[in-house]
Design a binder for these strands. Structure first.
Length: 609
DNA sequence: GCCGTTTTCGGCCCGACTGTTTTCAGTCG
């Protein structure tokens, strides 16, 4: 059983415990364990087989370790089965809908015998739902809409969200009184997909800003609007939340709304242990007097009562907290208060960054300026849209020291792959372009297909003439895990291969990764000194952040390449850098940060293999 | 159920908004 399946089982237990009304902290313990499993870089099955002590993992104690071990060894969990006998597992699905939490899922089941989404739909049609005490017509309508919403991808790819964010930010900046405006949330963490957009603002008058926000032309529906926050849904289905805060709270709010949630909870818990209260309003020292006297808190402002035509003169809401403020204008205030060094947004996933920042051990993450070359791109010789020369110019403009043209091999019919004969001609063109661009080293390379048996789609005599050989899979992706792994391992062992490209074949929101023992692949890559690619194309981003981090742990050399199919694609390097940072990579972990002489020395290692 | 640089027991993040209510529960992030 793989980590994803284990995480799903733990979530199932959490859902059912919650519906059952168990101690919420017990529920939270299972959810925290789920996140730990999801963020784990190693397969739990391998850890169990090796006799590793799972309770050393954060949030996993004796009981949950036992559940995991049982899942690995038997494929089932007695804990989960017991719960499912008592409560239908499908009730967990109901909680995924808007307006339904654990309590209402339970009420629906108890009052109307609802178990599935189909049951719920029928009950809504009969009008039964709104007659349950505490539900009412509006709640029923919220559920109905959530249920009827098209089941498209609930998360959008980062690169698809970026233009929307840019546009909304530009629109909002024109609102009167805007002092500062910045996206937060998973967008700021540069997650590969984004569920909704969070915008954070400081402004002198919230009314007009909220008005401008809700009147953005892409808005299809206003979900909520108050004096300090508002939410809209765009025609694309993307939800956008705007929060308005005071300047003195900006850093605390930015930290809070950047998340992720698990990271926030961990930081706040650290605060509690130091006698601090951390909220989006700031960091406060808890004092017994203010704690004991809620009346000492400032009264609620009246801004929220009539927001539709806000006079714009009100304050941005009063601070709903107590205690002595000790910081909050900057994010650094928050981290400093709990003894942490600054944590870059990309690392805020509660995957060890809290502990690392406590020890001052946050790595110096790679930046785009560290990149010296792009080693994977295509030209009109195969399925690219721009000539070799145009691609070279693009790389020169980006200030690279080196690059590689790597067109496809012939196995993939539709991409016009290069036969040995056409490769000869292409190499001559590369040679002639080189003469005109002495400021950049142009490597002649190829993206060679790994065939079904693990052999390469080009005779060795030709491979040896190339400066760099990238091996990758474009066909036969439904082979068994064993077959796929053997196939890739054989390619990695081939002495001509320098790089394994897009190692899992996944396409975000389009295609699952193929079945492969990635752990074995990464170990082999490290052993043979074959680089593993972090493919920066926004729909690939292959490897994912967790696997990037695992590759680094195993000492694998990582290469970040754009796989550009047109000169415009060279800009995708930025997304590769985002993902690399999320995988904790420093400059020194990435091969194409080497200057040309060192990079060439690495390529020459092939002669020694 | 987990966890400990105050703790092996007694805590566990914090606030806004909505709907259905007459003072708050539930949901959401």
């Amino acid at each position: 059983m793989n980590n994803t399946a284990i995480a799903r089982a733990l979530t199932g237990i959490a859902d059912l415990l919650e519906i059952r009304g168990e101690n919420p902290f017990k529920v939270r313990a299972y959810r925290r364990a789920t996140r730990t499993v999801e963020g784990l870089t190693r397969p739990l099955a391998a850890m169990v087989d090796a006799g590793a002590d799972l309770t050393t993992l954060p949030g996993i104690g004796r009981d949950i370790a036992r559940v995991i071990t049982e899942l690995v060894q038997t494929g089932e969990s007695g804990r989960l089965s017991d719960l499912e006998r008592e409560i239908p597992a499908t009730l967990g699905d109901l909680m995924r809908l808007n307006g339904i939490g654990p309590r209402r899922a339970r009420q629906l089941h108890d009052a109307l015998r609802i178990e599935t989404l189909a049951d719920l739909r029928n009950a809504l049609e009969r009008g039964d739902v709104e007659r349950i005490p505490g539900f009412g017509p509006k709640t029923a309508e919220t559920i109905r809409q959530s249920l009827s919403r098209p089941r498209g991808p609930v998360r959008f790819r980062l690169a698809d969200v970026e233009p929307i964010v840019d546009d909304m930010v530009a629109w909002l900046r024109a609102a009167p009184g805007i002092e500062r405006l910045e996206p937060a949330g998973s967008y700021r963490r540069r997650a590969e997909t984004v569920g909704d957009i969070d915008l954070l603002a400081i402004c002198s008058a919230p009314g007009p800003v909220v008005d401008r926000f809700t009147s953005y032309e892409g808005v299809s529906r206003v979900v909520a609007r108050g004096s300090t926050r508002a939410s809209v849904v765009l025609a694309s289905g993307m939800q956008v939340d705007l929060r308005i805060v005071e300047r003195e709270s900006y850093g605390a709010a930015l930290h809070y709304f950047t998340g992720n949630k698990a990271h926030n909870i961990a930081v706040r818990a650290l605060g509690v242990s130091r006698g601090l209260r951390i909220s989006e309003y700031g960091v406060f020292r808890v004092t017994s007097e203010t704690d004991a006297d809620p009346a000492a808190m400032p009264a609620m402002s009246h801004d929220g009562t009539e927001p539709a035509h806000g006079d714009g003169a009100g304050s941005t809401g009063s601070v709903q907290t107590s205690g002595q403020r000790i910081g909050g204008e900057t994010e650094e205030d928050v981290f400093r208060a709990v003894g942490m060094s600054y944590v870059p947004p990309e690392l805020r996933e509660d995957r060890g960054e809290i502990e690392a920042a406590g020890r001052g051990a946050i790595p110096d993450l790679i930046t785009q300026n560290d990149i010296r070359g792009d080693l994977h791109m295509h030209s009109t010789w195969s399925d690219g849209r721009d000539s070799i020369e145009t691609m070279v110019q693009g790389c020169v403009e980006r200030g690279y020291e080196y690059m590689a043209i790597t067109d496809h091999s012939p196995a993939v019919g539709v991409v016009n792959g290069l036969t040995p004969e056409r490769l000869e001609r292409q190499l001559r063109e590369v040679e002639s372009v080189r003469a005109n661009y002495p400021m950049i080293r142009i490597f002649a390379g190829m993206e060679v297909d790994i065939l079904g048996d693990g052999s390469l789609d080009l005779p060795d005599a030709y491979l040896d003439r190339l400066d760099i050989v990238i091996a990758s899979i474009h066909s036969g992706m439904r082979a068994s895990k064993q077959a796929m792994t053997d196939r890739i391992l054989r390619a990695i062992a081939h002495p001509a291969v320098d790089v394994l490209a897009h190692p899992t074949g996944r396409l975000i929101n389009e295609r699952e990764p193929y079945e492969v023992d990635l752990e074995a692949v990464l170990e082999a890559a490290a052993a043979h000194d074959v680089a593993v690619e972090l493919n920066a194309r926004p729909h690939r981003l292959d490897l994912c952040d967790v696997h990037v981090r695992r590759a680094r742990e195993l000492g694998v050399r990582i290469m970040i390449d754009t796989d550009a199919h047109a000169v415009g694609g060279l800009r995708y390097m930025a997304y590769g850098i985002d993902q690399a940072r999320r995988g904790w990579l420093a400059r020194t972990d990435v091969l194409n940060t080497l200057h040309l002489p060192e990079f060439e020395a690495w390529l020459r290692r092939r002669n020694r293999r």
